[in-house]
Write a protein that binds this DNA or RNA. Structure first.
Lengths: 135, 135
DNA sequence: AAATAGATTAGAATAATTCTAAAGAGGGAA
DNA sequence: TTCCCTCTTTAGAATTATTCTAATCTATTT
């Protein structure tokens, strides 16, 4: 991704555009691997692990990135959240697939009715298994 | 809850009905607090923390209990999952509300189409804020 | 260019969770 | 009922993902 645009994304969300943040954001936008902090650090070795964590926290706070806890490996996975989407997780392989072929408006309305809250976001994980996996 | 039924729940899922498991399952079924392992241990002091963790893992494996990661306190919260439902989380207070006024069939069908997997379960967390909270 | 609020860093600290290996107990078989 | 075997429980140690510290650096504003 071109640098000026990444810069704008950060600044539009009130974050200083440091070189580390530009690098990490670019990494997240160009990888569909749903990486952990450690995985990012393994690829971006010049950035300290503390900065990886700090930056991810900021990006999550402003809503650019979301956290997925697959609850299988005890680590948090991070996902660039440019367009709202949901996740389909293969229970055998733990592979995470992004999907957006579902309209969340009815769900939001149901949640508003049930809680009285103004709905601000959602996380959806759907679990499945390969049809030809034995049982 | 009456003991024989708890026993059946465990045995129907292939788990031995130990007294610790009966106690923990009863606790989960009678508390809507979405407790952490530590919270359960604080109330059931005679059961070791390792057993709390071991038991929760088993209950999650067989699908009686699910994990909610609110991603706010770094701890896993556990929820008896007798009837499928989704969660509405107040972003200010981190309160977790159970709700079931939503039909997941269309979502399951969308996920099946997107992934080709046989869908086995779901986790949905909807985030919201109190309408009269300032901004 | 200077000022400053915020960011980065290495390394230490924290704490949730998992592991170990020894002792105990369900539940099926006879 | 009693035996037996496999699975469970336990205390405490170990692990490790994440957070903290406090010193140094830098992006942005004036």
């Amino acid at each position: 991704m071109t640098e000026p645009l990444l810069r704008d994304i950060l600044q539009n969300h009130g974050l200083k555009a440091t070189s580390q943040r530009l690098t990490i954001l670019d990494y997240l936008m160009t990888h569909e691997t749903h990486p952990t902090a450690e995985m990012i650090h393994a690829d971006l070795t010049t950035i300290s692990l503390a900065t990886i964590y700090n930056t991810l926290e900021k990006l999550v706070d402003v809503g650019i990135v979301i956290v997925i806890d697959t609850q299988k490996d005890g680590k948090r996975h991070y996902d660039f959240y440019g367009e709202p989407h949901y996740h389909i997780i293969n229970s055998r392989t733990n592979e995470i697939i992004d999907a957006d072929n579902f309209d969340v408006k009815p769900l939001f309305e149901a949640a508003r009715q049930a809680s009285g809250l103004n709905i601000t976001g959602f996380h959806i994980e759907i679990y499945g298994v390969d049809p030809d996996d034995a049982k």
